[in-house]
């Protein structure tokens, strides 16, 4: 038998837990419910369930008017492009910085991960981008995203490289592996957990990125989804059903990645925070 005090404590804990999670559930529910309503019903933006028939054409209208196909493609290109570049550069750099800790490399590592804290000077960055002819280009955005994500991802992978035993390297070198072969054939496969985490986080961060495209992409055909949803909101702020449908479609990839990659996201976000 549990003591009444323990039962009361358990009920109390469960109530408090719901008191925190229900407010976190309401906004996503609000989007879902209202994206399935007509314009009139969604005007109030409340949690009443949608009535039948459900106006599924909200989604097709949004895809067409919000130019979602184009911006989905853009976002995908930006995110996938920067995931590939970031993983490549971050893992190679983290590997050498961890394995070969001479003074200079230690300094370069600190210099690189200082970027986790540093703010970007977007005004001066515009000058640099114009000089390099990268302003208002897709390639420029991908390189910029990569540069922004590199400090943290290098930090994340660096911590993991230290756990891979160096005996493997020695054995491979004795067997005649060059540095490139050694890394890509021997070490990189062992870094898979850290690399997967870095890839998932880079994808999420770049998909949600808003500031850089706002500054540097003035051509709507190059806009990622965040920018076009914001722009759509500005034009159709009275049609909450459409805005919600747009938000839902924009967030869908992120939510899917979250559902399937939750483990990686959590382990990546807690890197450096917890000894282990």
């Amino acid at each position: 038998m549990k003591s009444p005090k323990k039962v009361a404590g358990s009920i109390f804990r469960n109530v408090i837990a719901w008191m925190f999670s229900i407010p976190c559930l309401i906004p996503p529910l609000l989007i879902l419910v209202n994206s399935l309503k007509t314009k009139q019903a969604a005007a109030a933006m409340d949690l009443k369930l949608p009535s039948f028939p459900i106006p599924w054409d909200n989604f097709s209208v949004v895809i067409e008017k919000g130019k979602l196909a184009q911006s989905f493609l853009n976002s995908t290109v930006y995110s996938v492009g920067s995931v590939i570049l970031c993983i490549f550069f971050a893992s190679t750099a983290a590997y050498v910085m961890s394995r070969n800790q001479r003074r200079l490399n230690q300094f370069l590592y600190m210099f690189l991960i200082l970027g986790i804290t540093l703010p970007i000077n977007y005004v001066a960055l515009s000058k640099v981008l114009i000089t390099l002819h990268l302003n208002n280009t897709r390639g420029g955005i991908i390189l910029l995203y990569t540069a922004m994500q590199l400090p943290f991802m290098t930090f994340l992978i660096h911590g993991f490289v230290a756990k891979v035993p160096t005996e493997l390297d020695e054995a491979a070198v004795i067997d005649g592996c060059g540095p490139v072969k050694l890394f890509f054939l021997v070490v990189l496969p062992l870094l898979k957990p850290a690399v997967t985490t870095a890839a998932v986080l880079t994808f999420l961060n770049t998909w949600n990125e808003f500031t850089a495209p706002l500054y540097f992409l003035n051509n709507s055909t190059k806009w990622p989804m965040t920018l076009s949803v914001y722009n759509f909101f500005g034009m159709y702020f009275k049609d909450w059903n459409l805005v919600c449908a747009d938000i839902l479609l924009t967030s869908l990839p992120v939510i899917l990645v979250y559902l399937f990659g939750q483990r990686y996201i959590v382990s990546g976000m807690t890197t450096g925070a917890v000894k282990g």
């Binding site: 550069f89 190679t92 050498v96 210099f111 970027g115 390189l143 540069a147 922004m148 590199l150 290098t154």
Partner: peptide
């Protein structure tokens, strides 16, 4: 030799040019 400098070059160049240099 085994852990050569050019493995770090890509990350450092991108970070320096597009992040640190503007600062």
């Amino acid at each position: 030799k085994i852990y050569p400098w050019y493995f770090m070059a890509g990350a450092l160049v991108l970070y320096f040019v597009l992040f640190f240099l503007p600062g």
